[in-house]
């Protein structure tokens, strides 16, 4: 019975929080296997009175677990094609595209222009120094700089999905410029549809 309750609570919760994008039936099935669960940790503090209800809020925070939303890669695996290069790197605290990356971006713009039904995810990242929130904005600024170049060369604005992860998804971890430079990047992902 309690398993059913747990699942019911999970589904209710997903409804409340508007997780419609989680909503393929396969995902829901996965969720039922335990990825989305709410636990009542309040069970030991019921029915207590006192001058002041000490303890009534100990361990009373409920747990919520959420799943992952996914996306698919398209086929761009020929190493001789500039389209196989789908990561562009940046200088520290900069969103200026390096000259050496322009031919790669030209090729992507040409592909998008020739395939108006193909979309692309442009994901901005930073190194992990300084403010996380500022870095989130800096990652977006980098992604938008790439989008701007691709659009100037023929891609259409509605082909883009722009996202920033700031410093939340590092490509490499460490404490020197060789690592930081790998993290200051924009990743391009073609979206099948």
């Amino acid at each position: 019975m309690k398993v059913i309750n747990l699942v019911t609570v999970s589904l209710l919760l997903m409804a409340i929080s508007g997780c419609s994008s989680l909503g393929s039936s396969k995902k829901d099935a996965d969720s039922m296997q335990g990825d989305v669960a709410v636990e009542d940790r309040n069970a030991d503090s019921s029915g207590l009175e006192g001058g002041r209800a000490y303890g009534s809020d100990m361990n009373s925070e409920k747990q919520v677990v959420v799943g992952e939303d996914g996306y698919q890669d398209a086929q761009f695996n020929d190493p001789s094609s500039p389209l196989s290069h789908r990561v562009v790197y940046f200088d520290y605290d900069s969103s200026s595209v390096r000259a050496e990356d322009l031919p790669i971006l030209e090729a992507h713009a040409a592909y998008l222009s020739a395939h108006p039904n193909v979309n692309i995810r442009v994901e901005g990242h930073t190194d992990d120094r300084g403010s996380r929130e500022y870095n989130l904005a800096l990652g977006e600024r980098r992604a938008l700089a790439i989008r701007q170049i691709l659009m100037l060369q023929g891609a259409s604005i509605n082909q883009f999905q722009v996202t920033s992860y700031g410093e939340e998804r590092l490509a490499a971890e460490g404490y020197d410029e060789s690592v930081w430079s790998k993290n200051r990047r924009v990743e391009l992902t073609y979206l099948g549809r």
Binding site: I16, S17, C19, D57, K62, V66, L136
Partner: peptide, 27 residues
């Protein structure tokens, strides 16, 4: 980032209820 992009939630500590309060395009 559970839906693939930034989104702001408000979660009640006692009930566990959570609401998405900002999921606009962009950050």
């Amino acid at each position: 980032f559970e839906n693939g992009k930034t989104e702001i939630f408000v979660q009640e500590m006692t009930s566990g209820r959570r609401d998405s309060v900002a999921s606009f395009k962009g950050i």
